[in-house]
Simulated scan of single mutants.
Amino acid sequence: MNRLDAVSSEYFPNGATSVENDLVLHWYPRRITARFGHCRNLLELGIGHGFTTETFGAHTDRHVIVEGSPAVIAQFRGNHPDSAAEVVEGYFETFDTDERFDVIVMGFILEHVDDPGLLLARFRRFLAPGGRMFVAVPNAKSMNRRLGLELGLIDDIYSLNANDIALGHQRQFCRDTLRALLHEHGYAVVHEEGIYLKPLPLAVLKTLPDMAANLQAMLKVGVDFPDLCVGLLMEVRPA
């Protein structure tokens, strides 16, 4: 079995994390496109749940996606038969092209791969002059994880929980470690913001009579508080 297919069940509908995946993965692409407006071409790493393609596709003339899981590709093509995105099956570490892209998106990718530094170094050369890259990762120091540490539910702020394992995560990032990794591999951070300020467990949030409105408020408020958010979003350019 393809090793990426082994964790693909969480990327199918009704996975254990589907509520928050749906929330976050519809939110952050709109935050990215608000930063660049429209571009000539966009390279995205990973299909994931397939939520991002419609948003990015509407803001670029050419949308290329690199994806290593045949199961995820098959699901995407079945759910989005009319998508104009070009899907390239292959691992990020071996992807190569002569094309140079105005925008590259690594949305919740670096926590999965064996060597995130290798990816950052490799894909820097695929940026067009003046191009920009957007990187989103989970935040080890989110409010909910800080509370979990205080309550003894996790033994270290960077430890992987059951949800991380189910999703195929290999590591946790925080704002400092992500910035350091980006700088080490030749990028300057030009913008950063938080994704989803989550004060309570999802099971508790589901009991609120106005849960949907609360979740949207948590997304909007979280933009200004990256240190406490579930996810981090950074825009970078070659230094």
Rank of each mutant, 00 (worst) to 15 (best):
P226F: 05
P199E: 04
Y91P: 00
M234K: 07
K198S: 09
F126L: 14
P209M: 05
N21L: 12
M218E: 02
K198W: 01
F134D: 00
R35D: 15
K141A: 13
V221G: 02
G37S: 06
F92H: 08
A6P: 00
P138G: 00
I32Q: 09
K198H: 03
M218Q: 05
V19A: 13
V221I: 15
G90L: 10
H59Q: 06
G15K: 00
Y91D: 08
I47C: 10
R31K: 15
G130V: 10
I73C: 12
E67M: 10
L151T: 06
L127R: 07
S8C: 03
V223Q: 13
T17D: 15
N144F: 13
N139I: 02
N214G: 08
L149K: 02
L228G: 06
F101I: 05
E150P: 01
L182E: 04
F56V: 00
N79D: 15
L208G: 08
T52Y: 00
A71L: 11
L45C: 06
P116I: 05
T53K: 06
T97Y: 04
H38M: 07
P81N: 05
K141C: 15
K206I: 07
Y91H: 11
L233T: 03
D61R: 15
Q170H: 12
H112C: 00
E192C: 03
G131L: 03
V72L: 10
E89K: 05
F95G: 08
I109F: 05
A136S: 14
S159E: 14
R35P: 07
R62F: 12
K206E: 14
R125E: 14
T94A: 09
M211S: 11
E184L: 09
F92E: 03
S83M: 03
N139V: 05
Q75I: 01
N2S: 07
V72H: 00
R77N: 02
E192Q: 13
D61M: 10
A188C: 07
A34P: 02
D5Q: 04
D115E: 10
P238N: 10
F51K: 05
V236R: 12
V105P: 05
P209C: 06
N163V: 15
D210G: 07
T177C: 11
